[in-house]
Computed example of a mutant assay.
Amino acid sequence: MSTSLRIGFVTGATPDKWARHWRDRRPEPLELVPVTEAHQLDGVLDGSLDMAIVRLPVDRDGLHCVRLYDEVQVAVASRDHVLAAADAEVNTGDLVDEQLVRPHSSGWRPSADQLDWPPMDEREAIETVAAGTGVVILPMSVARLHQRKDVVSRVVSDLAPTTIALTWKVERDDDVTQAFVGVTKGRTANTSR
């Protein structure tokens, strides 16, 4: 029996298509392991995962990193919030007076004085804004994952998208690893790198 390929994937990433292609082409079993953004590299670094699908930025020291796709960022707020009246998009200028219930990964923050919020994960942040308190900015896929009827999300047009990438240790650059990279890059079974 072939050795299993263990791949972590960060909240919001969608590895299903690649997993299907892998299973159609390769004998090695593939195991997908959910990881949080805060710990997305831990398994790769400690060797419990062969690779990880991560949200950049990450420390790339000793790692290969291949960009897979970008995703837009959205502001999530209560359905009763003024944000709900906006069309499909807002910009950071529309959010300058808001309370961010969780710091934004880019470091952007509204000009209004911010409260000291306790640390919270994405689900907790969306529960907080659903109660009518502040907004949270998240990648669209994460906002969709935790979607609720009592919140709305609007694309934040002037924030750079977040990037999803595939990472693995430099010393683990073998044929199986490269075969999975090929699957994520859309190579067919007959294509070589």
Score class of each variant (00 low, 15 high):
residue 132 G to D: 07
residue 181 V to E: 03
residue 38 A to Q: 14
residue 151 V to D: 05
residue 76 V to E: 00
residue 141 S to G: 12
residue 18 W to Y: 09
residue 80 D to V: 13
residue 32 L to F: 05
residue 121 D to V: 01
residue 119 P to A: 13
residue 140 M to H: 09
residue 30 L to K: 11
residue 49 L to R: 08
residue 142 V to M: 11
residue 89 E to L: 06
residue 179 A to N: 10
residue 97 D to K: 06
residue 67 R to D: 12
residue 3 T to Y: 10
residue 125 A to R: 04
residue 66 V to T: 05
residue 112 A to M: 05
residue 189 A to W: 06
residue 10 V to I: 14
residue 168 W to D: 06
residue 87 D to Y: 07
residue 32 L to K: 11
residue 57 P to G: 06
residue 48 S to K: 06
residue 38 A to I: 10
residue 33 V to A: 12
residue 74 V to D: 05
residue 188 T to N: 08
residue 87 D to K: 14
residue 166 L to P: 01
residue 103 P to Q: 07
residue 29 P to K: 05
residue 80 D to A: 12
residue 100 L to Q: 02
residue 106 S to T: 14
residue 128 T to A: 11
residue 171 E to G: 08
residue 45 L to C: 06
residue 41 L to Q: 13
residue 175 D to H: 14
residue 175 D to C: 02
residue 25 R to F: 03
residue 19 A to K: 11
residue 163 T to A: 10
residue 23 R to V: 10
residue 2 S to C: 07
residue 96 V to A: 12
residue 190 N to I: 08
residue 129 V to C: 02
residue 24 D to T: 08
residue 59 D to S: 13
residue 137 I to R: 01
residue 112 A to Y: 01
residue 77 A to K: 09
residue 192 S to Y: 00
residue 192 S to N: 00
residue 78 S to E: 06
residue 177 T to N: 02
residue 10 V to T: 15
residue 141 S to W: 07
residue 171 E to M: 13
residue 56 L to A: 10
residue 104 H to N: 07
residue 145 L to S: 06
residue 26 R to K: 09
residue 159 L to G: 04
residue 36 T to L: 13
residue 154 R to G: 06
residue 122 E to W: 04
residue 132 G to F: 07
residue 5 L to M: 12
residue 29 P to T: 03
residue 56 L to C: 08
residue 183 V to N: 00
residue 17 K to A: 15
residue 193 R to W: 14
residue 132 G to P: 03
residue 28 E to L: 01
residue 139 P to R: 13
residue 17 K to G: 09
residue 182 G to D: 15
residue 151 V to M: 11
residue 31 E to Y: 04
residue 162 T to D: 10
residue 9 F to P: 01
residue 60 R to V: 05
residue 56 L to T: 00
residue 137 I to D: 04
residue 117 W to H: 12
residue 90 V to W: 09
residue 180 F to W: 08
residue 136 V to N: 04
residue 192 S to M: 05
residue 101 V to K: 05
residue 60 R to E: 15
residue 51 M to T: 04
residue 119 P to M: 03
residue 40 Q to D: 09
residue 160 A to S: 13
residue 81 H to V: 00
residue 76 V to A: 03
residue 193 R to D: 02
residue 35 V to F: 08
residue 62 G to H: 05
residue 155 V to N: 02
residue 86 A to D: 07
residue 179 A to D: 14
residue 18 W to H: 12
residue 184 T to N: 08
residue 170 V to M: 10
residue 188 T to H: 09
residue 173 D to G: 02
residue 135 V to L: 12
residue 93 G to E: 15
residue 165 A to T: 01
residue 18 W to I: 01
residue 159 L to Y: 10
residue 53 I to Y: 00
residue 153 S to D: 14
residue 71 E to L: 10
residue 102 R to K: 13
residue 87 D to R: 15
residue 55 R to G: 04
residue 175 D to M: 10
